[in-house]
Simulated assay, not measured.
Amino acid sequence: MTVEARPAASRLRCWVAPGVYPPQTDTRLLGRAMRREGVTAETDVLDLGTGSGVLAVEAARLGGHVTAVDISWRAVATARLNALLNGQTLHVRHGDLTAAVPGRRFDLVIANPPYVPAPEPPRGHARAWDAGPDGRLLIDRICDTAPAFLRPTGTLLIVHSHLCGIGETLSRLAEAGLRARIVDRTRLPFGTVLRSRLAWLRAQGLTADGTTEELVVIRAEPV
């Protein structure tokens, strides 16, 4: 579905449905990296796991031709509404990662996938952040398939926590034939979800005595 609306306002407006991942520190970190990419009217942008759609809307405001994808129908509806609220045009698709846009390649792909390690399979609202025992349920899929959805001069920006393996993501992208590096990072105290499973995280060796989380944005491009 294509959503079109009135001209964009100067301030981005955002409404988030219950069960949809709201904009947080990782969203802002990824947005900062995205703005450095010089998005123009010639840029085909894909937002994988768009959630609220705020980064897709921002990319559209920068002039990009934007496709946003999410497996959650609530997220799809939220992204469509936020496009309307901000007077932007988005192509919003329902589906599982790039299965929603088969055969297409993009100049810029941004991804803020679920990455929180969890003792149980993701279910309910927790599917917006939980990603299996190592937090890599979707990260590995994105890394492995990146060459198939990037143009030869395309760029992937993916954000996640140190709890699910920064080095592993860099290695996996390299194995897929991409040159990858960290372009942004920040550290913040554990939030409610991580604090609630601190004993389990320590038992898994995912964190020691610390209660802070490092978030990074990794930039990857074809070699």
Rank of each mutant, 00 (worst) to 15 (best):
M1G: 06
M1I: 03
R6T: 15
R6P: 00
A9C: 05
S10T: 07
L12E: 03
L12R: 03
V16D: 08
V16A: 09
A17I: 04
P22S: 15
Q24C: 11
R28L: 15
R28G: 07
G31T: 13
A33N: 06
V39A: 03
T40P: 06
T43W: 08
D44Q: 12
L48K: 00
S52L: 06
V57T: 03
E58S: 08
A59D: 09
L62P: 02
G63A: 10
T67N: 06
I71E: 04
I71G: 00
V76Q: 01
A77M: 13
T78H: 02
L84S: 13
Q88T: 04
T89F: 00
T89E: 13
L90G: 13
V92L: 07
G95D: 04
D96W: 08
D96P: 01
D96Y: 07
T98Q: 09
A100Q: 09
F106L: 08
V109N: 02
I110W: 04
P113N: 04
P114C: 11
P114S: 11
A118P: 00
A118Q: 01
E120M: 05
P121K: 03
A126R: 15
D130H: 14
D130A: 15
A131K: 05
P133A: 10
D134Y: 05
R136F: 11
L138N: 05
L138S: 12
A146G: 02
A148C: 06
F149I: 02
T153R: 14
G154L: 14
G154D: 11
T155F: 03
V159A: 10
I166S: 01
E168K: 11
E168F: 00
E168N: 00
R172H: 11
G177V: 13
V183W: 07
R187E: 15
V193P: 00
R195L: 14
R195G: 08
S196H: 13
S196V: 10
S196Y: 13
W200N: 02
L201V: 11
R202C: 13
Q204S: 02
G205L: 09
A208Q: 12
A208E: 12
G210F: 03
T212N: 10
P222I: 12
